[in-house]
């Protein structure tokens, strides 16, 4: 027995048939506690099996069901249908990314950018195993912990006005991941990362609109990471140009 009825207006795009995307409306009987992903799954299972979309965990961990819901980038598994009753809800693939098919976005751009910022620990010299592990205090962990919560759902890119205008912009999630490693007491790779992150396409294309942080379903606050990176990059720039720079490592 369904509690409420939801009208879903879903963007459809079949690269083999359609010249451009179109909208198709589905009427879905929902249960009160459903999330939008449940409604989309209902469409797939009971109404139209041709619908393509990504999802996996259904619990805001995997980051694959990021999409535009009523114009806002959200995780479909975290948006409750009860917040959309009595209106037609538009479901579109993430803004600012090309559409592969239906609700599936092309994410290659982000993947390449993520690679460029070297999101892994960089050591000038690895400690020999005999010296034991790299130890970290709780305070050192807290310095970057928040940024490890990113699930790469890319809602931040869909909300970012600068990424919309400047496709070359490395963007919120990738830069935040660079910041996560820069802030890690075990890491020594900031100078290497700044070759990318302190370029025009790095933090300097950010206008601090704060949209990324407002839509982030994991409260990672990419805008905060990027502003901190601007300050650090500025200090590093002055040090370098005053001849006191820690040159390339």
């Amino acid at each position: 027995m369904s509690d409420l009825q939801l009208e879903l207006e879903i963007l459809r795009y079949d690269p083999e048939q359609d010249q451009e995307p179109r909208f198709q409306t589905y009427s879905v009987p929902c249960q009160e506690e459903w999330v939008v992903l449940d409604a989309i799954n209902y469409v797939k299972d009971h109404i139209d099996s041709t619908l393509s979309y990504r999802w996996s965990c259904h619990m805001a961990v995997c980051g694959s069901c990021g999409m535009m819901i009523d114009g806002e980038p959200k995780l479909a598994c975290k948006a409750f249908v009860r917040d959309y009753v009595n209106k037609t809800v538009r479901i579109e693939p993430l803004a600012n990314f090309p559409i592969e098919r239906d609700l599936v976005s092309v994410l290659d751009d982000f993947m390449n950018k993520l690679r460029r910022v070297k999101p892994y620990l960089i050591r000038k010299e690895e400690k020999p195993l005999s010296e034991g592990e790299y130890r970290q205090t709780p305070a050192e962990l807290n310095k970057y912990k928040q940024y490890t919560l990113c699930i790469n759902c890319l809602c931040c890119y869909a909300a970012c006005p600068q990424y919309a205008l400047i496709p070359e912009f490395i963007g919120p999630a990738a830069l935040t991941m660079a910041h996560r490693y820069n802030q890690d007491s075990r890491d020594q790779g900031r100078a290497q990362r700044e070759e990318e992150t302190a370029s025009h396409e790095g933090v300097w294309d950010c206008a601090f609109a704060d949209a990324c942080s407002l839509v982030c379903p994991k409260h990672v606050d990419p805008a905060s990471a990027l502003q901190q990176m601007k300050i650090t990059s500025t200090v590093d720039w002055y040090l370098e140009h005053l001849g006191m720079g820690g040159k390339k490592s």
Binding site: Y13, P15, E16, D18, E20, P21, A95, P98, I99, E100, V106, P161, A164, L165
Partner: peptide, 16 residues
């Protein structure tokens, strides 16, 4: 299966 990603254009003067 051929890939033909669709790019949505935005207005650079009125997007806001």
């Amino acid at each position: 299966m051929s890939r033909r990603p669709y790019v949505r254009r935005i207005s650079t003067t009125t997007w806001y």
